[in-house]
């Protein structure tokens, strides 16, 4: 009885809204709006000061001839961009970066997947294998780069000594224009491998056992068939994520170039972030550096958009 009565009251209330209730509704709306701003405000403030304003500043600086520390600047329009694209050094840097990414991304994904599958298929020492493969990702790359430098040293490095003892040709890995980029890419793969592996392991864990059982019964019970029918498709979303993250990290490569090669020999190992750093903070051509940063940002944003739009639909099976 009481339920029926109260619902009748509600109906009567909604049928005739008095001015008093309307004012109350408005007060409620205002207080909700205030609460919303109060809650979102701090994050918004941080986002604006730490992200949007600097990005805007970079765009603005890219249109000037400002030099780091200079007290005056003048507006030069798109001159910096014209110069950037005409510059052989920048073009070499862009091509190097893309080549580097083309080696590192598939290499990392494939090796990461293979190692994850191997670890998952075996039963012993899983934690140990996970840990040793993940270590490079955790370590400071600058320190690791020095270790690599020692390994790759032309005369006393372990790599060349091993090759020589096996009677194989040696090389001055970091000083030869033909080998420097592939070698840096190898180090890049070595470093990102653990990250990809951990994500793939998590992805493998989340594949329901039922699907493997169904594949067994349907006849897809050989290793390759199971991989093609269940494992790889179900890892689609993880693979996409690894692809984007590793691609972004490949484009951001800086430490190894700075420590091992300084972009050399010539421009053979120069990459975007290194160019940006060198132009802005060594040559102090901040305006020019800012325009490189804009190009860099454009590439990164494009990569992210690809993830959000195109691939997302194809790997999440909804």
């Amino acid at each position: 009885m009481s339920i029926a009565a109260s619902s009748a009251e509600q109906q009567a209330g909604s049928a005739s809204v008095t001015p008093a209730t309307r004012a109350a509704l408005r007060r409620q709306r205002i207080s909700e709006t205030l609460a919303a701003w109060a809650l979102a405000g701090p994050a918004l403030l941080l986002l604006v000061t730490l992200f949007f304003l600097p990005v805007f500043a970079v765009f603005a600086i890219a249109l000037t001839d400002w030099q780091f520390g200079a007290s005056s600047l003048s507006f030069v329009g798109f001159d910096n961009f014209r110069e950037v694209f005409a510059d052989e050094g920048f073009r070499a840097s862009l091509i190097n970066t893309i080549l580097y990414a083309v080696i590192v991304v598939p290499g990392t994904i494939m090796l990461g997947l293979v190692i994850a599958l191997l670890i998952e298929s075996g039963k012993s020492c899983r934690a140990f294998y996970r840990a040793i493969h993940f270590l490079p990702f955790m370590a400071t790359l600058t320190a690791m780069a020095i270790a690599w430098e020692a390994l790759l040293h032309p005369t006393i490095g372990l790599v060349n000594q091993t090759l020589a003892s096996l009677g194989l040709p040696t090389a001055n890995w970091l000083r030869d224009a033909n080998t420097v980029l592939p070698v840096l890419a190898m180090i890049g793969i070595w470093q990102n491998l653990g990250y990809a592996m951990v994500l793939f392991l998590a992805g493998l864990k989340s594949i329901p056992q039922d699907l493997y059982d169904a594949a067994d019964i349907d006849g897809a019970d050989l290793w390759l068939d199971r991989l093609r029918t269940v494992t790889l498709p179900m890892l689609g979303p993880v693979t996409m994520f690894v692809f984007i993250v590793v691609a972004l990290r490949a484009f951001e490569t800086f430490d190894t170039v700075q420590v091992l090669t300084q972009g050399g020999p010539g421009h053979a190992s120069e990459m975007l972030l290194f160019t940006l750093y060198r132009e802005s903070f060594e040559y102090l051509r901040t305006g020019y550096g800012a325009s490189v940063a804009v190009v860099f940002l454009a590439i990164v944003v494009t990569l992210t958009l690809i993830q959000a739009r195109v691939m997302d639909k194809r790997v999440h099976y909804q």
Partner: peptide, 19 residues
């Protein structure tokens, strides 16, 4: 092997391949 037993199974979760 399951494949050679001439049995088919319907699972509680249906276990359809989502892709």
């Amino acid at each position: 092997r399951p494949k050679r037993r001439d049995v088919a199974m319907v699972f509680q979760s249906y276990a359809l391949y989502p892709h």
